[in-house]
Design a protein around this nucleic acid. Structure first.
Length: 596
DNA sequence: GTTAGGG
DNA sequence: CCCTAAC
């Protein structure tokens, strides 16, 4: 059946702009094969293009697909069914006419709140392929196609959208954020309701960022018991609302990550107009100003003393986008454009949503000391030869960092969460990035090819219009490719169909206690409620996980302590497990016997 | 979408 | 943690 034919899309990587998609909900990390928590990436849209023409997915007809409103609806128990309106199969889009290396580009487009909820585009060859259109050629190939998708950020700027603030980028790792800690909530039902809140650091990152996207001027919610009220983050359950078509599609055709160091010079050169990631610190001025189109962000550098004599020296950097490593997409040719976009989104989500932190490279050298000032590291120098690179890194690379434990966003309840995890390093593209003592600006703007401009910190923020003349694509510095070479892989080599398995995350004692409490209250068999009650914001814990954990807990409690492995669970908890299990089993029996 | 249970 | 049948 043609339906089961797959198309392999190889992503050499594409660039993610730093303008988030504010209208989208935040989801946590997740398996790439299933729709799960896709925290970070839902701030972005995917553009795919063939030969420079957009393919338009008819997603606008369903603007609420991923809107916060819908998330809210779902959260409040409304069963909002999503309709997949993507009817145009890929074969209509002429996507495979390019053989094994089509000029399909995927582009992350910042899609902000507003009328155009969905700015996804897929470019067809010579014609706009709207999904509702039938203008594309319907072709079917008997052979699998491997289409290399080169990523590029097309520089869709949305002036006026100021979205970043607070714990973005460095701020994220330097500013103590209440949401970056887990805390217990005893507000539920009084006694034993304990809620583990988001012990996931990467989700913290997303949360911090996303909440800031939404609250342009306010600080992140502090100690909000119910974070969902303060942030648009959706619970896990909400992630499962997508229609079965997409679900099945993604289940059947999971994409694969590909070794990033497979990137060759050709793939690099294919990115076309790419800069070398050089910052041009052409100007520095005292007194920071806000870009007219800038994205305001309070700086985590506050409190640090600027180098004497250079007080007020503002460095404006614009991270236009950051690079996502090469991906593999395996998708049937009968899949719709919308499905393709979503699949790509899932792919990117998985990579970006996996506990990242920001690494900074200066002239190829990684700057590890977070306490250094920009001027101390020489970033402020008016030197075009400086190469400043931003890098998305897996968290575990920070374990070796002395400042790891000082990073509030890495604080977790369970130490094992700090353990080494495989993830992916991503490269930031660079633009101008404004950092001041009190605030920093991130400005999304186009950039001239081969160069990155430092915009002067002029009082008149609109004076930086020259940026619009620049090109969108920014190159990742060659040096950064070295860093990418250390990208660990989860994919089994040799098996292109290998689906990513979620990383093992042992339950901490704290989590076990929360689980026990919830089960004591709710009983077994109500795992969704248990999840919502006690692990609502621990997005990496699904109710299936909780059910499984309870299963193992019961088993653990029954075996001898010598046979137990892993982090020892207090016997008191295990006793409660047995007690609760016995109780609820009895209740279950009673209910079953009642009708008789 | 959830639940239950085997793997 | 995955998978899937069953609901």
């Amino acid at each position: 059946m043609v339906l089961h034919k797959r198309l392999n899309y190889s992503f050499d990587g594409y660039h993610v702009p730093v303008i988030p998609r504010a209208s989208r909900s935040v989801r946590g990390r997740g398996s790439i094969r299933k729709k799960r928590d896709n925290s970070h990436i839902h701030a972005f849209e995917i553009l795919a293009s063939v030969a420079g023409n957009f393919l338009h997915a008819n997603e606008s007809s369903n603007p609420e697909n991923t809107s916060f409103a819908k998330e809210a609806d779902l959260f409040h128990g409304n069963n909002v069914k999503e309709k997949e309106n993507d009817e145009t199969g890929l074969f209509k889009g002429d996507l495979f006419t390019h053989g094994t290396c089509s000029k399909i580009t995927t582009t992350c487009v910042p899609s902000l709140q507003g009328e155009h909820d969905n700015q996804s585009h897929i470019e067809g060859q010579g014609q706009n392929v709207l999904e509702r259109e039938d203008g594309g050629m319907k072709r079917r190939n008997s052979n699998e196609k491997i289409i290399h998708i080169k990523g590029s950020y097309v520089g869709v700027n949305e002036p006026g959208h100021k979205v970043f603030k607070d714990c973005t980028l460095e701020n994220n790792v330097e500013k103590p954020l209440p949401e970056c800690r887990n805390h217990l909530d005893s507000s539920h039902g009084g006694s034993i309701a304990r809620k583990l809140v988001n012990t996931d650091n990467d989700e913290n990152f997303a949360r911090c960022t996303q909440s800031n996207l939404r609250n342009k001027i306010s600080s992140p919610p502090l100690d909000t018991p119910k974070l969902k009220d303060a942030s648009p983050i959706a619970s896990d359950e909400n992630n499962s609302r997508d229609n079965s078509e997409l679900e099945n599609l993604q289940r059947m055709y999971p994409f694969k990550k590909r070794k990033f160091f497979n990137q060759t010079s050709s793939s690099t050169s294919d990115r076309g107009s790419q800069c070398q990631g050089v910052f041009d610190f052409s100007d520095s001025k005292v007194n920071s100003t806000i870009h007219g189109t800038g994205i305001e962000e309070s700086s985590s550098i506050a409190g640090q003393q600027v180098h004497p004599g250079s007080k007020g020296c503002n460095v404006k950097l614009s991270i236009k986008s950051f690079k996502v490593p090469e991906l593999f997409i395996d998708i049937p040719e009968t899949a719709t454009i919308g499905s393709l976009k979503r699949t790509v989104m899932e792919a990117v989500t998985t990579i970006l949503g996996d506990e990242l932190h920001i690494g900074i490279l200066l002239q190829g050298k990684k700057i590890r000391d977070d306490n250094k000032t920009l001027i101390q590291t020489g970033i402020c120098q008016d030197d075009k030869r400086h190469r400043l690179g931003f890098m998305l890194e897996p968290r575990h690379t920070r374990i070796s960092s002395p400042s790891y434990n000082e990073d509030p966003c890495y604080l977790t309840s369970s130490p094992q969460q700090k353990l080494s995890r495989q993830s992916t390093s991503l490269m930031f593209q660079q633009g101008t990035y404004n950092v001041s003592q009190e605030r920093s600006l991130i400005k999304i703007e186009s950039c001239a090819e081969g160069d990155l401009k430092l915009s002067s910190s002029v009082a008149d923020t609109s004076a930086n219009n020259n940026m619009s003349k620049c090109r969108a694509l920014v190159a990742v510095p060659a040096i950064n490719m070295q860093a990418l070479a250390v990208v660990p892989l989860r994919r089994k080599s040799g098996n292109p169909d290998f689906g990513q398995r979620r990383i093992r995350r042992p339950f901490s004692v704290l989590e076990v206690e929360a689980l026990v409490q919830a089960v004591e209250k709710l009983g077994t068999g109500r795992w969704r409620d248990v999840k919502q009650r006690a692990f609502d914001h621990a997005k990496h814990r699904t109710y299936v996980d909780l059910k499984d954990k309870w299963k193992t807990l019961v088993h653990t409690a029954r075996i001898s302590p010598q046979q137990r492995r892993g982090e020892p669970v207090p016997q008191e908890l295990l006793d409660r497990v047995l007690a609760a299990h016995a109780y609820w089993s009895q209740q279950q029996c009673k209910h079953q016997l009642k009708p008789l």
